[in-house]
Simulated scan of single mutants.
Amino acid sequence: MTDKKKYKRNQKDSNDDMINLVDNLNRDDDVKYNRRAFLKSAVGASVALGLATLPFSVKAMLESDEEEEAFKIVSLDKVPKGSSYNFAYPTEADTALLIHTEEGEIKAYNNKCTHLQCPVFYEKEENVLLCPCHKGYFSVENGHPTAGPPQRELPLIKTEIRNGVVYAVGRKVRHG
Rank of each mutant, 00 (worst) to 15 (best):
Y85G: 01
P149D: 09
A88Y: 07
E63C: 06
L116F: 05
S75N: 12
G50F: 02
P55Y: 02
F71N: 01
E105M: 04
M1S: 12
L21Y: 11
R171D: 08
K6D: 08
L62A: 11
P132R: 03
D23W: 03
R27I: 07
A70K: 06
G170V: 04
E123Q: 07
V47A: 11
C131L: 02
F38I: 14
S75M: 10
Y167H: 06
D65P: 02
F56G: 09
S64P: 02
D94V: 10
T159I: 10
A70Y: 03
S14C: 04
F121K: 11
E125G: 05
P90K: 00
G44N: 11
A42Q: 10
T2K: 11
T95D: 01
A93T: 05
H175F: 12
K124L: 12
P145C: 04
E69M: 04
L76W: 08
V173C: 14
D77M: 02
T114Q: 02
G44M: 06
A147F: 09
M1W: 07
K72N: 03
K12S: 10
C118Q: 01
V22F: 06
D29R: 13
K124D: 08
V128D: 06
H115I: 13
N34Y: 12
N110F: 02
R35C: 13
D65E: 09
E92Y: 03
I99H: 00
D30A: 13
R162H: 07
T146N: 04
N26E: 09
K135E: 14
G82I: 10
I73N: 00
K135Y: 10
G148Y: 05
A48N: 11
V169E: 11
I157Q: 03
S14V: 04
K5L: 09
A96R: 00
Y109G: 00
G143N: 03
V166E: 06
D77Y: 03
A168I: 15
K112E: 13
N24E: 13
M61W: 05
K158H: 06
R35E: 15
L49E: 15
F87V: 11
V165A: 14
L130W: 11
L129W: 02
L62Y: 02
G176K: 09
R36P: 13
T114R: 00
V31F: 13
K124Y: 07
G104H: 01
N26P: 05
N20D: 07
T159M: 08
R9M: 13
N142K: 04
R174E: 14
N15G: 13
D3T: 06
A108G: 00
N111S: 01
Y85P: 03
D17T: 12
F121D: 10
V22K: 11
A60Y: 07
N10L: 14
L21R: 11
P132Y: 02
L49W: 13
K135G: 06
L98S: 00
L76V: 09
A37G: 15
